[in-house]
Structures are given as structure tokens and as C-alpha cells.
């Protein structure tokens, strides 16, 4: 069975309000993670009785200020420090701020760097394989 994926978009301004709404509705904070695309995406995931909801913020670059949600979910400080150390994201007012010393990394914000150019060209369409191999 495939789990349903509920993706919602939001903005840094609306974030705290949305998160507070999730907290009031009894959701558990599952994770906060970032992705470097052309700019940056931050995903806030919540769960209530296996019902999975994901909020996404899109940012142009990592200098943009994002409010911390550690005031709503105390446990968010770990994720937010991680985002700061790996992506260099500028998260304001983290409850416990490690000031960039959460991970002992060789290079600051290494995950914000662009990957090497892909060797294989982009496929026109995603294709799915169903050919069965007998064993």
C-alpha cells in the first residue's frame, strides 16, 4: 500500500501560524529537512495517527530569514541547528542555538553547494519497469 502524501505550500511569514495550528490539532513533529534546488526548500512534516502532512517553504537563497518553530515544538531545535550547519540557513531565535557547532563539519554549509553536473541527460519521461525475471 502506498502511503498518501499530503504536500502543502506555505511562506516564512505564515509558518508559525500554520505550525501552531498543527500543534493545536495534536500533530507530532516528524521532521524538518531542507533541499537545495535552484534555491532552497524547507519541509516541515507532521503526523497524527499515521496521517502525514508536509509543509513546504521555497526560498530564493539561504540568507533569507526564517522564524524558528522551536517556540511551538521544543524538539525542533535539533532540526533547525542541523539546517543551519549543513545548509547555512538563517533561522532566527532558535530555543537552544548551537551557533554552528551542532555538527563538527569540515566545511560550513557544505550541503548548500551545487552537485557536480549530472553525467546522464535528463530522461524525457519517468518510465516504470514491470518486466518479471524468473528465478
Amino acid at each position: 500500500m502506498i502511503e498518501s502524501q499530503d504536500f502543502r505550500e506555505t511562506t516564512p511569514e505564515r509558518l508559525i501560524g500554520e505550525v501552531q495550528g498543527m500543534r493545536d490539532a495534536g500533530y507530532r513533529l516528524v521532521q524538518i529537512g531542507a533541499t537545495r534546488t535552484e534555491g532552497f526548500e524547507i519541509n516541515y512534516s507532521f503526523d497524527r495517527n499515521l496521517e502525514f502532512v508536509n509543509f513546504k517553504i521555497r526560498l530564493a537563497d539561504n540568507t533569507e530569514a526564517i522564524p524558528s518553530i522551536s517556540g511551538v515544538y521544543w524538539s525542533a531545535f535539533l532540526y533547525e541547528n542541523e539546517l543551519h550547519d549543513l545548509f547555512g540557513l538563517n533561522i532566527k531565535n532558535i530555543h537552544i542555538d548551537y551557533q554552528g557547532h551542532f555538527y563538527r563539519v569540515a566545511r560550513p554549509a557544505a550541503f548548500a553547494e551545487k552537485p557536480p553536473p549530472p553525467k546522464i541527460k535528463r530522461a524525457v519521461k519517468p518510465t516504470a519497469g514491470t518486466e518479471v525475471k524468473e528465478t
Binding site: 512534516s45 530522461a123 519517468p126 518510465t127 518486466e131 518479471v132 525475471k133
Partner: peptide, 30 residues
């Protein structure tokens, strides 16, 4: 059979959640 041949390349994003001995593990794949 125990496997099928995989052709093509992945595209999209997905949260995979499973239960490890220690609890829920999340794989976000984009």
C-alpha cells in the same frame, strides 16, 4: 519471482516511513 527488472529513472518526491527497532525512520527522496 523475488525481483523484477528495473528500467527507467526516478522522478518526483516521496516520504518513505518504516518502523525500525528504534522507531520510525523517514526517507525523503527527491
Amino acid at each position: 519471482a523475488i525481483e523484477i527488472k528495473v528500467t527507467g529513472l526516478p522522478e518526483g518526491e516521496f516520504y518513505a516511513r518504516t518502523e525500525q527497532p528504534r522507531g520510525e525512520v523517514i526517507y525523503y527522496i527527491k
